[in-house]
């Protein structure tokens, strides 16, 4: 049996299948120098000024979950994609695809949240579009947001990770797996009650503080679908560098750990919506952690590993019991419709 000739849910997982699909269909036909970078945001040069441009769609099920809703995700997702590129997010568009029959109250709640989050993040929703489809042709509501941010020249290398060096430290701003497991637990068919809240948040202010505190920020990426495992594996592969992560430095909240154990998920591959992987010059690492810890979204920030001398092209985990294993990209589907 050869590769699938139809789209599988796994193609939307953010892991290996998604990457293959992007390469074999989208990049194949849309190919251009911006797309080839495969960064969170495209960096465009317009008359001497650099702007970052990105887009993201949100189909999470259920649309309301502990810690947020689809609207909060739609703002935070796009704001964070711009911010991790080193840009200052400025303008957002939003497109709504709504299922016939959605209670107006629910739509209003989503939109109210979006307005609140946008204001808090300092971005403006400047244009939008609404489509309504027959009942059953979409599930409640899907949202697309696109965003534009301004980028200073000195941050241009961040999104492409072009300046990574051996010995650079890898930092994360807190616990992993909260968003994925919060959504999972919120699904009615699972009958799990757990005290888990999504980490979904706009991180542009926190990122700005970090960029102001240190000139040694070499790379940032928000670890959404595919989890930190996929980000780290991809980073090692594309830059042909080794990465070594210490499992006992990773924070996994009790509730998240519990559901992961129960359902057989690896927290390394569970989605986050408020976590950024930073690669930072070794001498600035402590300063960056201290800066992060002052922000409400970085209180549990810590150094979790480094760009290592060996293992070129692969990412490794020193396990909590002192063993060693590889960290690969998420294969197949971990959880559908998580964002």
């Amino acid at each position: 049996m050869s590769k699938s000739d139809t789209i599988l849910l796994g193609h939307g997982s953010g892991g290996k299948l998604s990457h293959d699909l992007i390469d074999s269909i989208f990049v194949k036909y849309f190919d251009n120098k911006y797309l080839q970078q495969q960064t969170d945001s495209a960096i465009l040069n317009t008359e001497g000024k650099k702007i970052a441009f990105t887009t993201d769609s949100f189909v999470v099920d259920p649309i309301f979950f502990p810690g947020g809703n689809i609207g909060k995700l739609a703002i935070a997702g796009t704001v964070n994609d711009l911010a991790v590129s080193g840009a200052v997010p400025k303008y957002l568009s939003c497109g709504f695809i709504i299922e016939e029959g959605l209670p107006l109250k629910e739509l209003e709640e989503v939109v109210k949240t979006m307005a609140y989050e946008a204001k808090k993040a300092g971005v403006v929703l400047v244009t939008g579009d609404t489509k309504v489809v027959d009942r059953g042709k979409c599930d409640k509501i899907y949202i697309n947001t696109s965003g534009i941010g301004l980028l200073e020249d000195k941050y241009e290398g961040i999104s492409t990770a072009s300046q990574l060096k051996k010995g650079d430290k890898i930092i994360i701003n807190g616990s992993i797996g909260d968003h994925g497991m919060a959504v999972m637990a919120a699904r009615n068919d699972l009958n799990i009650s757990a005290d888990i809240s999504s980490d979904c948040a706009c991180l542009n202010t926190m990122i700005k503080e970090v960029l102001e505190a240190s000139d040694g920020i070499r790379f940032m990426r928000d670890a959404t679908r595919g989890g930190i495992g996929t980000v780290l594996s991809e980073l090692a592969k594309t830059n042909n560098l080794g990465i070594l992560i210490k499992e006992d430095k990773l924070i996994v909240n009790e509730g998240v750990k519990g559901i992961c154990e129960l359902l057989g998920f690896d927290p390394l591959y569970v989605a986050n919506e408020g976590k950024v992987i930073f690669v930072v010059a070794s001498e600035d690492a402590v300063k960056v952690v201290e800066t992060l810890r002052k922000n409400e979204y970085g209180k549990e920030a810590s150094i979790i590993g480094e760009i290592s001398e060996d293992h070129n092209g692969t990412s490794w985990l020193e396990t909590s019991v002192g063993g060693k294993r590889i960290i690969d990209m998420l294969s197949g589907q971990q959880l559908p419709r998580i964002c």
Partner: peptide, 26 residues
Amino acid sequence: CTPSNPIGACMVSNEGSCAAYYLYNR
């Protein structure tokens, strides 16, 4: 044979040795 294009069952299952080696010990 990879987890996203498994040829044999050992690469698919959460308990398969090929999947375990692919994921953690290549």
